[in-house]
Amino acid sequence: MQDARKLLPIQLGTQGRCLVGWLAHRHILVRFDRYDDYGLVVAKTVQYLLYNGLQKQFREFSWTIGFNPKEETSRAFVWISFPNLPPELFAKQSLITVNCLGCW
């Protein structure tokens, strides 16, 4: 575990701190203190950890309250397109803000 705590932040390319600990057999919990680091890690489809000269493949997913290490998890990425969106609305805050003027 000490090796994972040292290697993961470096090999994942995180900028902030991340806490690494055991979650269950063959499952490690990584908590990031920066949202950008979390986004960087989950955006990659395949991750590899270089350890003792060998590349170990792993995948990441968001932890949920109902997590069961014996069940296979699924994840789906969605691409949403906003044709003709004005440039000033490309900011993250603009995209996630709900405007209820046109709500039903």
Rank of each mutant, 00 (worst) to 15 (best):
Q2K: 13
A4T: 00
R5D: 05
R5H: 04
L8V: 05
I10L: 15
Q11Y: 02
L12T: 03
L12W: 13
G13R: 03
T14V: 15
R17N: 11
C18K: 03
G21D: 02
W22R: 03
H25R: 13
H25S: 14
H27R: 14
I28V: 15
L29S: 09
V30H: 04
R31S: 14
R31W: 09
D33I: 04
R34S: 03
D37V: 00
G39L: 14
G39T: 10
V41M: 06
V41H: 05
V42W: 08
V42P: 04
V42I: 15
V42Q: 13
A43V: 02
V46A: 08
Q47V: 02
Q47F: 01
Q47K: 12
Y48A: 00
L49N: 10
L49T: 10
Y51T: 02
N52D: 14
G53C: 09
G53L: 09
L54E: 15
L54F: 12
K56E: 15
F58G: 11
F58A: 13
F61V: 03
W63C: 04
G66H: 06
G66T: 07
N68L: 12
K70C: 01
E71H: 12
E72W: 04
R75K: 10
R75N: 11
A76F: 08
V78W: 09
W79Y: 09
I80S: 06
I80V: 13
F82H: 02
F82D: 00
P83H: 01
N84Y: 04
P86K: 10
P86L: 04
E88W: 02
L89M: 10
F90W: 03
L95E: 00
L95N: 01
L95Y: 00
T97K: 06
V98R: 14
W104G: 07
